[in-house]
Write a protein that binds this DNA or RNA. Structure first.
Lengths: 226, 226
DNA sequence: CCAAATATTACTGTATACAAAATATTGAGA
DNA sequence: TCTCAATATTTTGTATACAGTAATATTTGG
């Protein structure tokens, strides 16, 4: 939709601001509830209020910020309820995605998926790789599946739902055991897709998401005890 | 998300402009490919360019307009491919919705659903009722199911997907036979939900969407022959 | 009369200015 | 010292101004 992510010099400032603010929110640099004040943001980023406001409109529509009437924007708070709502939808759409991927992935698509998995695996093997790299490699792997569905709308919605959970994805990547079991799960998914075995693929992806859900809920429980 | 739809006088102009433009696009008054020029829109709506631009940012993020670099916004074109992409996702999420509705709808929710259906039925019976009323009553019926899921994210995404197809929904309501079969389908869905029979409910809702898909694709075929 | 070069126009992208509203602050009186 | 009102400050919402670029019209040479 908006996002092709190549920051070239012809990209409008609003896009740059949008990407910058979104990254800050998803990485937790801007905390939930924090106010986004236009003038200070404008000063910090060295632009005027106009592109700041337009970026906020985009973030608002994506659900990452909420507008308080006459009080401006603040970073959206995520409740356990909302997170589980997202996961419920996501599980359904991930299932649809893997089904369609089984039907529609070409040999090249499958090669790209294997390639992405190998990359993720190498980051897991490397003890020095940081969480951001790891998370990106995981995203890239799942993206190859999404792309395999050939359904642009599905790709877009899934990418969006994933972003809503970025902060929590980081959590479950901290655990080394979790990482290696992710590799196992990825490989099972790949094999199922390769043999076009949609029943198996659905089973594995469901398990994959369920595992994530468990870890995320546990980490929220832990966090709410602070 | 953005949309609580009560146009009160404290609503920012950007919201009013956003809702106005969206309605125009969905009702086909602004045609696909048509350019949205800021100054003329500003003059027409009696506001300055600022709220127009912010509304365009929201529409852009919703996918209803696309930005051509340095050429501004134009109404997004919908291809058959895109429409079928939307329908594929929608079928999956409608299925999820009816499942969760079976689990979670309260007696009041079910009463509201029956009520909405009766209203739709009376519009169908009335030969004078216009298509817009009919479409709204149909929307209201399905909304009661969405609300029954208690999943705000799901409600929001389904509402959004439905909007993408507004133009085509009108098509299949033109046929009187179609309308009465809609009533039958609605009733079947209600009974399944009432008895918490999720298998049956899923079967009926799938059929419901499949019927829509058939009619819409037929109407697009017909239209593309112009 | 046609084509290329140039001038003009129109529109976007960005910055800034101004008004109204909300919030914070100050000060007077009890 | 506390409370409440008046004032100041901050911040949003909207309008407008200005610059740069792409599209279009115009002119000029062949």
């Amino acid at each position: 939709m908006v996002n092709e992510n190549e920051i070239n010099e012809f990209m409008p400032l609003r896009e740059v601001v949008f990407l910058t603010l979104r990254k800050s929110i998803l990485r937790g640099e801007l905390l939930p509830g924090e106010r986004l004040m236009e003038i200070s943001l404008a000063n910090k980023l060295g632009v005027s209020r106009t592109p700041i406001r337009e970026a906020i409109r985009m973030l608002e529509h994506e659900g990452l910020v909420v507008m308080k009437p006459r009080r401006g924007a603040q970073v959206a708070k995520i409740t356990t309820q909302e997170l589980n709502d997202v996961l419920e939808v996501r599980k359904s759409l991930e299932t649809l995605a893997i089904l369609k991927a089984c039907e529609r992935m070409t040999e090249e698509d499958i090669a790209a998926m294997r390639q992405a998995e190998r990359r993720f695996e190498s980051f897991v093997a490397d003890k020095d790789s940081d969480l951001t790299e790891l998370a990106e490699a995981d995203v890239a792997f799942h993206d190859t599946i999404y792309q395999g569905t050939k359904n642009r709308r599905l790709i877009q919605i899934l990418a969006n739902l994933r972003e809503q959970m970025y902060r929590f994805r980081i959590e479950y990547l901290k655990d080394a055991d979790m990482r290696s079991s992710l590799v196992t799960e990825h490989k099972a998914i790949i094999e199922a897709v390769c043999s076009r075995d949609s029943d198996k693929a659905v089973r594995y992806i469901t398990e994959h998401i369920d595992n994530q859900q468990r870890v995320i809920n546990a980490s929220i429980e832990a966090a709410s005890e602070d």
